[in-house]
């Protein structure tokens, strides 16, 4: 029994990071109505930029390295919209998909170009897990959970308690109507991209602390984020949160039943089942930011 509870605990921690990835993806979909295939690269860039500031020549402490890394990731996120997606938005919506898939490939290879294709780590000494009543948690896992809760709490307060959040939600609900009501679209679009990038970067950093860095980390986790977004109903922020948690738990519990090599298949299979039976998402009934 305690074995399953331990897996559940691991699942919640992994899921909270997936939720960070999924929030940005679903927000972009909610406002711009397109699935950004290069969202995964923001995860990778966030992690690698942190590594860059953490290692020589900078050698800054970890928390200090994360801040400029997230800021630079936000610059990447904002620029991809400004230079590529915005000019394409008026045309055939489907060209955006080709552009985003091309962009993701370009950004991933840029990571390989700069930092190489090998696995990298933050080189923390292997820490003994702390024991809480028979369950083991590492310090990094606690940090992951705390950071995820922190970011998601800020998001919740921002979206529900501020005028800025209100304008974002209004735009996600109906872009034209929001523009007619005088909400500044450039501001909303900048906010969405910055939010999506910072959350993706934060998730990428946490993931890299727990595991390692590799150029394909973004692409692998993008699929988890897709699954989370589909679970929650595209465009629904709270749905994406729950979806991310669900995927994390399902994956980790799945390890108890089949070979760990198939861990990633859980998210894939979920996507298929959802598309087959509930194209509008499992939590589509919840009223979220839509």
């Amino acid at each position: 029994m305690s074995y399953y509870l331990q897996l559940l605990l691991n699942g919640v921690i992994a899921g909270s990071v997936y939720a960070l990835f999924a929030v940005g993806l679903t927000l972009v979909y909610g406002v711009f109505r397109f699935i950004n295939f290069s969202h995964g690269e923001l995860i990778t860039w966030g992690a690698y930029l942190t590594l860059m500031f953490y290692t020589p020549p900078f050698s800054w402490p970890l928390f200090l390295s994360a801040i400029p890394a997230m800021a630079l990731t936000a610059v990447i996120g904002f620029s991809q919209d400004f230079f590529i997606y915005r000019p394409l938005r008026r045309g055939n919506p489907i060209t955006l998909l080709i552009a985003s898939i091309g962009l993701s490939y370009m950004l991933r290879n840029a990571v390989r170009f700069i930092w190489g294709s090998d696995l990298r780590t933050f080189d923390f000494p292997p820490a003994r897990g702390m024991e809480f009543g028979g369950y083991y948690v590492t310090g990094i896992q606690l940090l992951m959970l705390a950071a995820a809760v922190f970011f998601l709490a800020i998001l919740y307060l921002g979206l529900t308690r501020t005028l800025w959040g209100k304008s974002l939600r209004a735009t996600a609900d109906n872009l034209e109507l929001a523009a007619i009501m005088g909400i500044s679209m450039p501001r909303v679009s900048a906010s969405v991209w910055i939010l999506a990038s910072v959350f993706a970067a934060a998730g990428g950093i946490l993931l890299a602390l727990d595991t390692n860095l590799e150029p394909v980390m973004g692409a692998t986790n993008l699929i988890k984020a897709f699954a989370a977004v589909l679970l929650g109903g595209a465009g629904n922020v709270w749905g994406a949160l729950l979806g991310g948690l669900f995927i994390g738990i399902a994956e980790n519990l799945g390890v108890a039943f089949f070979s760990p090599g198939y861990k990633d298949l859980v998210a894939f299979a979920l996507i298929f089942l959802l598309l087959l039976f509930r194209p509008r998402g499992l939590f589509g009934l919840l009223t979220g930011v839509r």
Binding site: P87, M106, L107, A110
Partner: peptide, 21 residues
Amino acid sequence: HRYVAPLQGMVYGGILVLIVL
């Protein structure tokens, strides 16, 4: 040599974006 393959990938991705644009 280690830079060749990533650079090629960047060019492929970049061309795709440029054509669409």
